[in-house]
């Protein structure tokens, strides 16, 4: 499990290149936003004006779209993002207690980041791992049947 590479500082030419790369698609906005977030770890504010102009939408409309979706961030997350499933199947297997204990241990609320920047913790509503609950995802790695000991090891590995 390696941490995500440090996000690049957003340069105008990188932003333009990402927009140009997806501009030909039908309904290009979400693919562009995903690509921006992948490159920079968030949707950088300097991308708003060129993006609105390229797609011929207002900045208000763009803000409306970005803020609608849980995935898009206005600022970079920690080096790793831990998503803990809060949905019903995980609750049936003690997911709520696991989440509560993890937040308490880290001294964080949902969406919080540890002071050392190692980890951001997010709720997620179903990872499709409902038959091996409770489940979490760290980066893109999924983990099932998570108990306190397994959570401790995960947190230790990411240095949270």
């Amino acid at each position: 499990m390696h941490a995500q590479p440090p996000a690049k500082a957003p340069e105008r030419e990188d932003i333009d290149a990402i927009i140009a790369q997806h501009h030909h698609l039908e309904g290009p906005l979400l693919p562009i936003l995903h690509a921006l977030q992948e490159a920079f770890g968030h949707i950088p504010e300097p991308a708003h004006a060129p993006l609105a102009e390229a797609l011929n939408i207002t900045r208000a409309e763009l803000h409306g779209v970005i803020s609608f979706y849980h995935d898009f961030r206005a600022a970079p997350a920690g080096r790793q993002v831990l998503k803990i499933c809060r949905a019903e199947a995980c609750q049936a297997m003690g997911g709520a207690a696991l989440a509560e204990a993890t937040l308490k241990r880290l001294g964080l609320d949902w969406h919080g980041t540890t002071p050392n920047g190692a980890l951001t913790i997010e709720p997620v509503y179903c990872l499709g791992l409902c038959a091996c609950a409770p489940a979490v995802m760290i980066g893109e790695r999924v983990v099932g049947r998570v108990d306190a000991a397994r959570m401790d090891r995960l947190l230790e590995v990411v240095g949270a």
């Binding site: 949905a87 019903e88 995980c90 509503y125 179903c126 499709g128 409902c130 038959a131």
Partner: peptide, 12 residues
């Protein structure tokens, strides 16, 4: 967009 908890047939 299989968001319902307890479902994973689409994913599988």
């Amino acid at each position: 967009d299989e968001g319902d908890s307890g479902t994973f047939a689409d994913r599988m």
